[in-house]
Design a protein around this nucleic acid. Structure first.
Length: 269
DNA sequence: TAAGTATGTTAAG
DNA sequence: TTAACCTACTTAC
């Protein structure tokens, strides 16, 4: 479930299980074998997340830069670790725990300078304390691109994915096809503040929930969600179903090779 | 067994 | 705009 909240949670979970002491590192799948050999028996000193990028710090050796992409998965377990399957790109293990990484878009040992370059090409992240929404606003307010596309652009704002984009636009009654130029500073600030809150809760619960208390299944007297993506949402993957708020039909359309979901009734142009 | 899908990104045309 | 990449699961035949 790789949106930004997942990655920040992974940073914390890696440090909790492996931080401050040596780890065994292997790459059963093979693509990370050389680097794993360098890391083996070295201490994991720190972990960090920016948007959907995860960094595992190994001091002078550098950082393991991980990006899960669409399919990447991380699985933690307690020691003793079972024999790894042949798709495990990286396994870290110590006396008490192990973690398997499968299918990442990126898993590479990088130097400080390369890490800095990654930070520089990413926008502010609602989950990084001190990150400034006005840095994003400077670009958004000048853009003729749709707000739906801007929210997915990691150079503009880091960590938002297809679920948070659809949900935050619904929560603010914003038509996804409005352009950046057309938004007000107040609307953008409200989106950011809401993302901070939603994504922090996402880190806590390790899933995305966006439905306000007054619209929950219990409050509305409707059956609980059927979708299996993990959380309770208004529009994401609810195409052609009735809107939880107005009862109108949720619409879907392709936008920049991804599926967009919105409620035309609640999200007026 | 094959096809389709998925919370993502990059590079080529 | 399209294809490519990585994996696992579900659905269709």
């Amino acid at each position: 479930m790789p949106e930004g909240h997942t990655i920040h949670r992974l940073a914390a979970d890696h440090f909790e299980r492996f931080g401050g002491r040596p780890v065994r590192a292997t790459s059963p799948q093979g693509k990370f074998s050389d680097s794993a050999a360098l890391l083996d028996d070295q201490a994991l000193e720190s972990t960090e997340a920016h948007g959907k990028h995860l960094f595992l710090g190994f001091g002078p050796l550098g950082w393991v830069h991980i990006h899960l992409g669409l399919f990447g998965k991380v699985a933690f377990g307690d020691a003793p670790a079972p024999p790894p399957t042949d798709t495990v790109r990286l396994r870290l293990a110590n006396a008490t725990a192990y973690v398997d990484l499968r299918g990442p878009t990126a898993c590479a040992l990088i130097a400080d300078g390369e890490k800095t370059a990654i930070h520089e090409r990413l926008g502010p992240d609602p989950l990084r304390p001190g990150d400034d929404p006005d840095r994003a606003w400077a670009r958004v307010s000048r853009s003729r691109t749709t707000v739906a596309a801007l929210l997915m652009d990691q150079k503009i704002i880091a960590g938002v994915g297809n679920v948070y984009r659809a949900e935050v636009l619904f929560r603010h009654g914003i038509d996804p096809y409005r352009t950046g130029k057309d938004l007000t500073h107040g609307e953008w600030t409200a989106i950011w503040v809401d993302l901070v809150e939603l994504m922090r809760e996402g880190v806590r619960n390790n899933r995305i929930d966006t439905v306000r208390p007054e619209h929950t299944p219990e409050a509305m007297g409707r059956p609980p969600r059927v979708d299996d993506h993990g959380g309770e949402v208004y529009v994401y993957r609810r195409a052609h179903l009735p809107c939880h708020v107005c009862g109108g039909e949720i619409r879907t359309a392709g936008l920049a090779a991804r599926n967009l979901f919105w409620c035309p009734g609640c999200q007026q142009a």
